[in-house]
Design a protein around this nucleic acid. Structure first.
Length: 369
RNA sequence: GCGCAAUUGGUGAAGGGGUUAACACGGCGGAUUGUGGUUCCGUUAUGCAAGGGUUCGAAUCCCUUAUUGCGCC
């Protein structure tokens, strides 16, 4: 089956919903950990289930290069290949248009890349991206888009946004997997009329869900929130809305407040590998000297495996010595932190006090208590 | 005991009269938003074994002492 979204409650724009997938029913708003190369770095599926994680991400571009979509198909699809019995969303490779910016050449037909592995010249098109995702057999495929850099001129943003819409149509036309949902992606850069145009045109094509892309690419927070506001009012209520690449604890709240249902971000795992942890009182850096003899958990009342079993002093030691377990333990904590945050957000929406929850959370996170 | 050589930060070291003591590692701090596990940025010796001398100017030249290494009794 394809994805089904049911809006349960709308509390002043903050939405509580239910997402029915091939691998279970999950409540939204939700946070989706990123597992680019068919694994959430350093973590096993069992560890993800224990954190109450639902959808995870994998990346078309990366899996296309290694091991190749045919290998994954031969393995029986992405779920079997990586042993994940939960829903998987595949990013289209569109973000690589942005992140590999120095090595790209965009034409109407698609994008020329130089492989980040061996420099080989590659050509990715909207059709190819969707065909690869069909083969990977993820639960949600994403349209192939261009993530517009920030800042971008109005002319460039317009040209790129229009092209992304044409690419979305082309991708939808070849999409051929009845078990897989397909999401469109809104672009438009920082420009209000382009965001509106992108939203209206993308909705016309009719997707199973809509993503807001082109955010968290270097713009300030207010600009990012505006990018959401400009587009989201034109999206249908009965489809999920996904804010791509956003995962700072405060941004999740700001996104939910604007009607976002799904988020993904590399931040919890990347920060973990570099020794940082989310806490309700703000981010901390476990490498700091002050934790050398701190034998308390990262957070006393956190229910994650790491906090139940390990001290800051020990994690600092692991990170200092470049031991992988340090990054693993922090990844567990950071992902659980964001998932728990979303659980509490859903609870607050249910109870009708999301606004208060949001204000209290942000105040504590910013001011440390 | 005599001769020769060496001594520069937490570590490995460059510099053999010219002003701010290179570089690397380590340390400390920061960054990170559709992945960077190997990344990026900042900072880290008011001082060159100690003392004295020559010179406008000394880590650099000279003397004394200390320590270390090598060789010879």
């Amino acid at each position: 089956m394809k994805l089904k979204y049911e809006l349960i409650k709308n509390d002043q724009s903050a939405r509580l919903g239910k997402l029915k997938t091939n691998y279970g029913v999950y409540e939204t708003p939700m946070f989706m950990p990123v597992g680019t190369l068919a694994n959430v770095k350093t973590l096993t599926p069992e560890e993800l289930y224990e954190m109450n994680s639902a959808i995870i991400l994998a990346n078309t571009y990366h899996l296309w290069l290694r091991p190749g979509e045919d290998i994954v198909a031969k393995a029986g699809g992405l779920h079997k290949f990586m042993n994940y019995n939960g829903p998987i969303l595949t990013d289209s490779g569109g973000f690589q248009v942005f992140s590999l910016a120095r090595k790209k050449d965009i034409i109407e037909e698609g994008v020329f890349f130089k492989s980040h592995i061996d420099g080989k010249k590659l050509f990715l098109t909207p059709e190819l991206s969707i065909q690869i995702q069909n083969k990977l057999d993820s639960d949600i495929a994403m349209s192939f888009d261009e993530c517009i850099p920030y800042p971008a001129s109005y002319e460039y943003a317009k040209e790129s946004t229009e092209r992304t819409i044409r690419w979305a149509k082309r991708g939808k036309d070849v999409h051929n997997n009845s078990n897989q949902a397909l999401f469109g992606i809104i672009q438009g850069g920082e420009y209000e009329d382009l965001r509106k145009y992108s939203a209206l045109e993308t909705v016309k094509i009719d997707f199973d869900g809509y993503a807001i892309g082109g955010t968290s690419v270097g713009e300030d927070k207010q600009t990012m929130y505006k990018m959401i506001d400009y587009a989201i009012k034109y999206l249908p209520n009965d489809k999920p809305r996904y804010l791509m690449g956003v995962g700072e604890p405060i941004d999740l709240l700001e996104g939910v407040a604007r009607g976002i249902d799904m988020f993904d971000c590399v931040l919890p795992t990347r920060l973990a590998r570099h020794g940082n942890a989310f806490t309700r009182n703000g981010r901390i850096n476990l490498k700091n000297l002050k934790y050398k003899e701190d034998f308390n958990p990262i957070e006393n009342n956190c229910d994650c495996y790491t906090c139940k079993n390990y001290t800051k002093s020990y994690i600092r030691h692991l990170i200092t010595c470049d031991e992988m377990l340090g990054g693993r333990l922090l990844s567990i904590h950071n992902i659980r932190f964001l998932i728990k945050e979303m659980e509490e957000i859903r609870e607050a929406i249910k109870n009708g006090n999301f606004k208060e929850f949001k204000e209290q959370f942000i105040s504590k996170y910013k001011n440390g208590d």
